[in-house]
Nucleic acid binder design. Structure first.
Lengths: 350, 350
DNA sequence: CTGTTAGCGCGTTCAG
DNA sequence: CTGAACGCGCTAACAG
């Protein structure tokens, strides 16, 4: 057994292929200090001499040391992660919001962990359970979710819960960050009224958010002497398509459709197209969320901008506060809504 | 030094609000058994009596016990997670692939952990580093990435790397799962030729995948006696827009554009629209990936279907094999490509 | 400033 | 079948 070379190094590296990653102890030994000092030095503790620090840093560098986050999480009993509960990654609104959320979390040394309940549902255990098992330090619920019970459980078990773009579940003192849904709907409805539309239908969506948007629509329509015509339209492209199709097939079809969100609005566009109706000549369509899909030129959907990025950022800030301090709970932060007019809305033909 | 021993009861539960989640020991105590038995019982070890098992299960239920995954990961020196490296969540292809991947991973008791290098880049540390620090058991690279060096490091440090929809980096014995890019491009090009197009341009994209698609295009075009007209078009909507805009502004503009992917194709659609060109009358456009955005009716993009879901599934399977067994490495699995014809392609006017 | 000692919560021996 | 003991890699509380 002639060793290829008599390497006088520690026996971690002379092993065959699977070299277990270097640990803090390896670094400490190589630098000739104790583990705790190595830890302090690497984490920038002010009470460590420059010389020591440099040699520890060097040793870490040489060994290609990476602090093991799972060990750290166990020791700190906090993982430095926050769970983000989405319910469908295909909804671009979630993705847009995530950008703002991640940016804010990063400022607090936190990293997002994604979980879409759509995926988790197949698996049996709820997405919330998965997150809790991972010991996330907080959970941000993005948009409407069905995962009610587990969430309630999480909140009472001490895990801070933040609501972004939704009010549900309402009975767990969570901070909520939303846009002014009622006013957003007012803007959309006024826009259609200004274009001369008199037969406007609103495709309603779920939750308090859906209720507020419907309320804004109803108030504005009725103030203009119109009936508050609403039909359930869901929050997906498919459901929006189905609802719009039924409406547009009818003799007495609406001249304008204001949908709960962009996805449903796109479904409505599809329905119009399939029925040979031209947008906006035969029917105008307005969405909500102003996602990047709405901005795609072949779509060019007029949509209410709800400050998606800002909502993400504020949710992240709230999360940081709840995790570090003990501030917060049941706050409501409302972001302004505005209307982005594109090419799916036009004057009513009468 | 008055010892805090004075507490007569288990000082876990009599504390105020923030009750630390129950541990395995709590469960064991409540069920009147040892920790090890509790562990075995909960994990379904066959050598545990039914009565015992039931009482342990019951105790766990009562306490709302959730096994702490970070503790488990630390003890097992494997986390049960695989890192998924995306580079832009806004690209719907990634999201579609993720569905297949998650499904497959779930079969092996693994869960995906998402990391988009787009987000990570701002943060400084590369996304790969983040994943490695989390001790993911494998990394699946989805699509082209710039994170070359860290990936190479990861691979040589013993973390299995899988490539889904890309060949890069090529020198780390990773399994790769792709579609037949060359043939996909042939299908797209033939389709345009069959429609009578003679001035076809291909917007090329990055990497070996981009090269293969370009090669398929070139071969097919030249076989038809056409020049192999190619222009760099990138992989984003913006870059596709810019490239297409320059081309379409020109007097001698192409009658058909075959883009590297759907996003770039959508950019091309936008450019055409902005220039007052009608699709497909004035110019035909073909994408690649057949994402759900392509299927949106107002878009209705003709696109090459590359079996996104299947690629995800196969990547997941490979990952499981690499993690559990020691099989694998440098395998190539190729999925068939097909063409989905929609409404952005039509006959050439001549 | 440093080093030593305990755990964090769980899996896994290994004796009883 | 049981229960005690150890270790995963790290942080935190103490002593020196």
């Amino acid at each position: 057994m002639s060793a290829p070379y008599a390497e006088p190094m520690d026996h971690r590296e002379d092993r065959a292929r699977p070299p277990s990653p270097p640990t803090l102890r390896d670094v400490a030994e190589r630098a000739g200090v104790s583990k705790s000092l190595a830890s302090l030095a690497l984490r920038g503790d002010p009470g460590v001499g420059e010389a020591r620090r440099a040699s520890v840093r060097q040793a870490a560098e040489d060994l290609g040391y990476r602090p093991n986050r799972v060990a750290r999480a166990l020791a700190e009993t906090r993982s430095g992660t926050v769970g983000v509960l989405l319910n469908d990654l295909r909804n671009p609104w979630f993705v847009d919001l995530l950008a703002g959320l991640t940016a804010a979390l990063d400022g607090g040394g936190l990293a997002p962990v994604l979980a879409d309940s759509f995926t988790a549902r197949r698996i049996g255990r709820s997405a919330v359970d998965q997150l809790l098992a991972q010991r996330v330090d907080a959970i941000v619920v993005v948009g409407t979710t069905e995962d009610d019970a587990p969430l309630r459980e999480a909140a009472t078990s001490g895990c801070p819960v933040l609501l972004a773009g939704t009010y549900e579940p309402g009975d767990l003192d969570a901070d909520v960050v939303v846009n002014d849904d009622r006013h957003g709907a007012v803007l959309a409805t006024r826009h259609l009224l200004d274009l001369g539309h008199r037969r406007i239908v609103h495709l309603t969506g779920p939750g308090e958010v859906g209720r507020l948007r419907a309320e804004g629509f109803r108030a504005t329509a009725e103030a203009a002497g119109l009936p508050a015509w609403t039909v359930a339209g869901g929050m997906s492209e498919e459901s929006g398509y189905a609802a719009a199709r039924r409406l547009l097939e009818d003799k007495a079809r609406p001249s304008a459709v204001f949908a709960y969100n962009d996805l449903a609005a796109i479904g409505a566009l599809s329905a119009a197209h399939d029925l040979g109706l031209e947008v906006p000549r035969d029917v105008s369509v307005v969405g909500y969320d102003n996602t990047h899909i709405a901005a795609i030129r072949p779509v060019s959907l007029t949509s209410v901008d709800n400050g998606t990025f800002a909502i993400g950022v504020q949710s992240g800030r709230f999360a940081i506060e709840r995790i570090s301090g003990r501030i917060g709970g049941a706050r409501v932060h409302r972001v302004a809504a505005s209307l982005e007019v594109r090419r799916t809305t036009g004057p009513a033909l009468l």
